[in-house]
Design a protein around this nucleic acid. Structure first.
Lengths: 224, 224
DNA sequence: ATATTTTAATATACTAGTATGGTAGTTGAT
DNA sequence: ATCAACTACCATACTAGTATATTAAAATAT
């Protein structure tokens, strides 16, 4: 029972994070069956915290629970991906404008540090760390505007997109362009030029548009 | 056990809707204690479906669960209200633009019917039905753009605002202006004039801005 | 009398077992 | 051979009881 308990929070949270992580990383592939008992046994916990984690994941549409029947890992839904992209684009543009007004000296330093670390990671070639820093950059902008929850919501809305991203992560990701864009966005925000900052942000978000339809043709069994 | 079961779905869903409804309508006031057992006894169900409903409500920040200690109805958080307003404004402006392109004949009739019913309700003075039709009007626009989930998300984000609205619902709500704005927005969308439609929508959303700070001063114990 | 420790009560967190319904495989009739 | 009815199995849904942590009251020491 008391094994390698790497959780700080509740058992439910531990199960939630673990299963979500495994879904995003394709350990559990879209469409496969998965059951409360299976996970409970695997993680050495009872069914209830697993069930509670499942309910949470079902709300985020990563699992599809069919009452009295079974649960499967949701297939990737391109309409959901589009809703996530749409929401992110429009909210983040607005955030960028607002950040121009609200940025204080402390947060300016945070962004500067973040970007410096990004440049460092490019030289070192540590892409997974770069990925984190990318996320962090955007999160800081939401923090500046006092809109942490909105960021979390956008993250949750994009979990299907996250799975797509993993598929192509190894491939041709031009991090140089990404970091350059971050630098430009930062510059415009720090100079309080909302129009220019917004345009750059839009361009930045549209850069990561994925070849969704091609992937759907290549792996049709993983799509809805 | 088998009493007036008015639920079509699961017990969990029944409890969720019931408790949420009671919170929004101030039957359970912000800050009061509430427990799984209390609700379970009151609704004649066991603790688990109540617990699951609680978890859902806690995610929407309508309940605050303190582990091993207790649960209270969340006090109204004006920062959350602002995040909800912000998100709604920017998403709905974008939806309005997109609706100009995507509206088909069938949906056009739906909107026309909706507005006709709104006018009818104004004459009859049935404000609660008007309230529903108002919600429906906006929902149709999201449907037009194939973004049902985004609408649901915005609804959930605004549950604290919904509580504020109930406080002032009886009072001076000028439904005539609201319905006129709906008509104008509809006209511009049907004529595919995105710029004009967007401006009207922004104006429309900003009409319902509530005197938040005044309410906070008047009822400080209900606010965070 | 006040501060500290102990104890009892009570809330959520978790475990385990039962109920219920859906599904697939098997059996039987045509 | 095909189709319908039956049956056995297994999934989630729910119930009930135990574990554990927090909180506040009671007892004790200073």
């Amino acid at each position: 029972m008391i094994s390698k308990i790497e959780f700080v929070g509740s058992t439910r949270d531990y199960v939630y994070r673990k299963v979500k992580d495994q879904i995003i990383n394709w350990d559990y592939k879209p469409g496969v069956k998965i059951s409360e008992k299976e996970i409970a046994d695997k993680l050495n916990v009872s069914r209830t915290p697993v069930r509670e984690a499942f309910l949470q994941l079902a709300q985020e549409e990563l699992l599809k629970i069919v009452p009295q029947s079974g649960t499967i890992v949701s297939k990737i839904d391109l309409e959901l991906v589009e809703e996530g992209r749409f929401t992110r684009e429009h909210i983040e543009k607005a955030i960028t404008r607002e950040a121009c007004e609200k940025l204080d000296d402390n947060q300016l330093i945070l962004l500067k540090t973040n970007i410096a670390m990004q440049e460092f990671c490019i030289e070192k070639g540590s892409h997974s760390r770069l990925f984190q820093l990318d996320e962090e950059f955007h999160q800081i902008l939401f923090d500046v505007c006092n809109k942490k929850r909105t960021w979390e919501l956008i993250r949750k809305m994009n979990s299907h997109f996250d799975r797509l991203r993993v598929l192509r992560l190894a491939r041709n990701h031009n991090w140089n362009i990404v970091v350059d864009q971050h630098k430009e966005i930062f510059t415009y925000i720090s100079q309080s030029k909302p129009d220019l900052a917004e345009v750059k942000m839009e361009e930045h978000i549209k850069l990561v548009i994925v070849e969704k339809e091609e992937l759907k043709i290549k792996y049709p069994e993983y799509f809805k």
